[in-house]
Design a protein around this nucleic acid. Sequence first.
DNA 1: TCCATATTCAACCAATAGGTTGAATGAAAG
DNA 2: CTTTCATTCAACCTATTGGTTGAATATGGA
Lengths: 107, 107
Amino acid sequence: MEAVALDHTMLALADPTRRAILQRLGSGEARVTELAAPFAMSLNAVSKHIRVLERAELVQRRRAGREHILSLNPKPLDEAAAWIDEQRRFWTANLDALERALADYED
Amino acid sequence: MEAVALDHTMLALADPTRRAILQRLGSGEARVTELAAPFAMSLNAVSKHIRVLERAELVQRRRAGREHILSLNPKPLDEAAAWIDEQRRFWTANLDALERALADYED
DNA sequence: TCCATATTCAACCAATAGGTTGAATGAAAG
DNA sequence: CTTTCATTCAACCTATTGGTTGAATATGGA
């Protein structure tokens, strides 16, 4: 994944409102007003959050007349998970090597 | 995971310098100066990045004389990965339900 | 046509991020 | 001791976030 794309994805995930929006979109597409309803903030604020999610390409917009229908795009989520998993594999591999070295030392 | 902890973790991961620091720490602990060496920015800037990683508890500090030794703490990484995986499971479950509904409809 | 609805745009604001430089602290080494 | 090394603290700067309110735009419906 492009570094800047990861930046955008991780930043988008670093806010509880945006995570809640993603979670909501997990059960199906929704209009802006529907997405905004649960939150104690203005529609405009939610609209801005949606733009952050769009920048990260976590969310796609489709216009149907005056309504904008948002839907989830899981790919950046996959790529963020892949980055984390790679780090964890790398880290545990090095830990294992350390343990083997210690075992050798103890012999 | 606490929402605010996830906020801190995701935000910490949303910067290429900090991700590189984590990657470096994957292969073993390091001093501040060592961590800063690869980057074209001041030591102070890297010191700040480290504080962001510490706030997220992705990194731990141990003092040895005048040196501060940083090491990786993978737990927040695990919890971030768990959040993402949960979303993906939820999402694919709903997609599957949708597909089943479509299959029924087509019958 | 006129009004209501859905949404964004624009301007503003306070707080935070991400960087700089310069000074302070504190340990090590000569 | 005095100097060097490792690191943070403090102040500052600019850009971005995350929110607000008010106006603009565009579609739908009576």
